[in-house]
Design a protein around this nucleic acid. Structure first.
Lengths: 132, 132
DNA sequence: TTACACCCTGTAGCAACTACAGGGTCAAGC
DNA sequence: GCTTGACCCTGTAGTTGCTACAGGGTGTAA
């Protein structure tokens, strides 16, 4: 299978596939006589794994670790579980941060009286603390 | 006031202050005879504004727009309000995305039976769709 | 044969900083 | 008066995770 086929089978851009190869996430495939990359089902499985992990928000470094762990099937699953749990707490704190930020932004917007910028409460809120 | 003082007064790194100057967000200050940057209260106010807007998650491009709007005090406040509202909806969709992702990751983690990687449901979940 | 879709390599760009490298300046202490 | 150390300067390269060229080669169908 050519790179374009692999890419569309995994909803990935061709450039991204080559990028994953360059950084060592995807092993270099065989080449045709025309120097085209030629992928097998192993590549498809591995790229699917990468994409799915990325969709779940894992960083490329985490994906790299997960792949290493996945390759050693006799190992305990706990390391995998650990990476996922760390990631979960990161997501939780991002959600908390965004939620707090949303509340404050909402408050700022709520102060808008639609006058001129001179009286704009939004601009004022953004100004230095001592000006309030 | 020297760059280090301005930086610590606004909880910004010195490099970031110079970066804001380079991209035109912060006007170039006067220089001392030793070529040190010398800031006034106007710079402090402007940098405070930038930091606060950044803390609220506005992009530098949005900050640039807000600053332009803030400089023309006779203008209507509605443009400012508009930028803030667009940003709010972006935050809302980020929160929604992260929440959905959290749910799924939690489900994936919940499937862990702490056996070997060979039986790891997390790894399995990350694999290609047809393997499930 | 010529048009077109696809493939190749290599490099530069995006956000928003951050981190050097390799210098200069200034105040305090000996 | 000299050294030490904290600060300042410029300029460039690195970070993450791609994306977008530029400038070529290949394969196939009309």
């Amino acid at each position: 299978m050519k790179i374009g086929e692999l890419a569309s089978a995994t909803a990935t851009k061709v450039e991204t596939v080559r990028f994953y190869e360059k950084i060592g996430l995807l092993p270099p495939p065989a080449r045709t006589s025309a120097n085209y990359r030629s992928y097998g089902s192993g590549h498809l499985a591995r790229l699917s794994f990468i994409r799915r992990a990325r969709d779940l928000g894992f960083t490329l470094e985490a994906v790299r670790e997960l792949l290493t762990l996945a390759d050693d099937t006799s190992q305990s699953c706990d390391a995998v579980d650990g990476i996922a749990r760390v990631h979960l707490t990161e997501i939780d704190s991002k959600i908390a941060d965004l939620t707090a930020l949303r509340t404050e932004l909402d408050r700022v917007i709520g102060s808008c009286r639609h006058g001129t910028v001179a009286d704009c409460k939004i601009i004022e809120t953004l100004g230095p603390r001592e000006a309030r």
